[in-house]
Amino acid sequence: MRTLPLTLVVITHNEAHTIARCLDSIPFAAEKLVVDSGSDDDTVAIARAHGARVVQQEWLGFGPQRNFATTQCTHDWILALDADESLSPELVAELERELPALMASDAPAAWLRRRTIYMGRPMRWYRPSVGEKLARIYHRDRARWTDARVHESLRFEGRAPTFTAPFDHANNPTLPHKQLKVLRYAELKCRDWLEKGKPVRMWQAPFVYLLAFLKDYVFRLAMLDGWRGFLIAQTAASYALYKRMRYYEMRQNPASVAEAEAVLRRHGIDR
C-alpha cells in the first residue's frame, strides 16, 4: 500500500488501551506523530512499537497542544485524531482515492464524519453521534486550532470538501470514564471563563439543565436510542449545569482553583 506525504497527529496522556488501534487504522500516512504529555503507562512504548515518532510536551491545553503538534510535523498536510478514534476501512479506502487530489489543491482543510460507539455499539439516532462533521484534515499553513483549553476547533477560510465514510469514536467506554472527563473538561472551561471575566448568572442554572436535556433528548433525537439516549442527554445536561456551579465557586472562592487542580492531578484527571 502506497504512503502519502501526510502526518497523522495524536495527542496523548495515558492512552495505552487505545493508541495501537488508532495508529494501525491509518496505513497510508508517511509519518505518525504522537505528542505525549507525560504518560506514566505504556502509551509511549506502544506508540513507538506501532510506528509512531513520539515527542514529549508538557500539557498546554487542547488547542495549544494541537498547535504545538502541528509545528512538529514533517509534512504540511495533517490528519488529527484522538487516541480513542480510528478510521473505518471504508474511510481508509475513500481517503486513499481522494486525498491526492485534495493535497494537490489549494483547499485549506477537509471535513470527516464521526460515528460514536457508546456502551459497546454505535448510536443509531442521536445526531451528534451519527455523522457529526469535524474538520480533521488540514494544511498547516492554511488552518490553525483555536487556543481554547477545551472544546477547541480548527479555523480556516475557504471551502473544504467533506468525505463520506465515517471514522469511529470509542466514546467513554464506561460511565466512570465519562464522569472523570466531565470533571476535567468543566475545570478547563471554567478557567477559560475566569480569564475572560465572564459574568456569573446562577439564576440561569435550572433553565440551563432543562434546556440542555431537551435539546439532546428531543431535538437531537437521543430518545430514539432508548435508555442509552436518556443517559447521554442526562450526562450532557449535568455537565452544562456543573460548569456553572463550578464557575460560581471559583468566583466566590478563588483559592478553590488551585485546590481543585491539586486534587484532580493527584487522581490523574488534570494535566
Rank of each mutant, 00 (worst) to 15 (best):
D192R: 06
K178S: 06
G38A: 08
L6A: 03
F230G: 12
A104I: 05
G197D: 06
R159D: 15
R184F: 06
T74G: 06
A160N: 07
T7P: 03
I269E: 05
I78G: 03
A107N: 07
L180P: 01
D141C: 11
A20S: 10
F207W: 13
C190S: 09
Y247N: 00
N172D: 10
L188T: 00
E249N: 11
L102T: 05
Q179G: 08
G268T: 15
E157Y: 00
W77N: 02
Y138K: 02
R115T: 06
N67G: 02
V54K: 02
F219M: 11
P27G: 12
R97H: 14
H267A: 12
P206M: 13
I19Y: 01
G158H: 00
Y248V: 00
Q179C: 11
T164A: 15
W193R: 04
R266I: 05
S256K: 15
P27L: 05
S153K: 08
G158P: 03
A233P: 11
L87V: 09
P89C: 06
Q72K: 13
G268N: 15
R124N: 09
A233E: 02
R142W: 02
R155P: 00
P176T: 07
S25A: 14
E132L: 13
V182S: 07
E98A: 15
M103W: 02
I232A: 08
A83F: 10
S86T: 03
E195N: 04
R48A: 08
L211E: 10
Q65H: 01
F230M: 12
F230S: 10
P27K: 09
P89Y: 07
T146E: 08
A49W: 01
A80R: 06
L210P: 04
R265A: 10
E259T: 07
R115H: 11
A262D: 13
A110R: 09
P27C: 07
R121H: 04
L175Y: 09
L81K: 05
F156R: 11
D216H: 09
D24V: 00
G268F: 10
